[in-house]
Amino acid sequence: MTAVRLLVADDHPVVRDGIVGMVSSDPGIEVVGEASDGAEAVGLARALQPDVVLMDLRMPGTDGVTAIRELVRLGIPSRVVVLTTYDADADVLPAIEAGATGYLLKDASRDELVRAVHAAAAGHASLSPSVASRLVDRVRTPEASLLSPRELQVLGLVADGATNREAGARLHLSEATVKTHLLSVYGKLGVGDRAAAVAEGFRRGLLGASSSPVRRPR
């Protein structure tokens, strides 16, 4: 049987060495390259055509999700298994949506890691239990319930052009409380600013008629 050709992408040399050591003990896996960031991972994937890329998410320069999107855009057939310490929705969902085949946490055992690499090479998904549970919850839970009613109100006012102070006055909240709600919204939607939160809110249907945001007076 031909060994699975594997590329390992992680910005920490010690972590890469540990991963390579773990998987290299399996005769069915051949590590063909190592990358220290997402851009290098894409370049090596183009040159080496590995079967599977083990991809960290948070790396300097080009991050893992951006690298996954670029691999898909370039039509590189390598399967990607994310290997990270982060399992929040804001990390998991963008990676899966970008095209990751698997998602494991760095506390995974050697056997779990090896199984995930072989599964990905065969085109099968492999998810850590906590990640699988999150995805199941998202399927079972309507999108609109991602944000609390108050968070939806704040986001609706922001979409209508209100400042934090104006939103606070309309909702009888302090400006600091509005900011706290906005930060929570950012985390849940996986965004970093007001404009991105509004755009993502519309994309997910959170700012449609069903969300009934409070409108500021004209």
Rank of each mutant, 00 (worst) to 15 (best):
L57E: 00
V52L: 08
P60L: 08
P27I: 10
V15G: 01
E40R: 15
D10F: 01
P50F: 14
A35C: 03
V52R: 05
A41S: 07
M22R: 11
E34M: 15
P50A: 11
V8E: 03
A9C: 12
V32I: 14
D37C: 07
A39Q: 15
L48T: 06
V14K: 07
R46G: 12
G28C: 04
V31P: 09
A35V: 02
S36V: 13
R16K: 06
D37P: 06
V20H: 08
V23P: 06
P60N: 11
V8K: 01
Q49G: 10
G28D: 08
G43Y: 04
V31F: 13
H12N: 15
V42K: 00
E40S: 13
R46I: 04
G33A: 02
D11W: 00
D56Q: 04
M22W: 08
G21H: 12
V8H: 02
A45I: 03
R46D: 13
I29D: 03
M55S: 07
V8I: 14
I29Q: 07
D11H: 03
E34A: 14
S36P: 06
E30D: 15
V53L: 11
G28S: 08
R46L: 09
H12T: 14
V20Y: 10
G38W: 00
A35P: 04
V14G: 08
A9N: 09
D11V: 00
A45H: 09
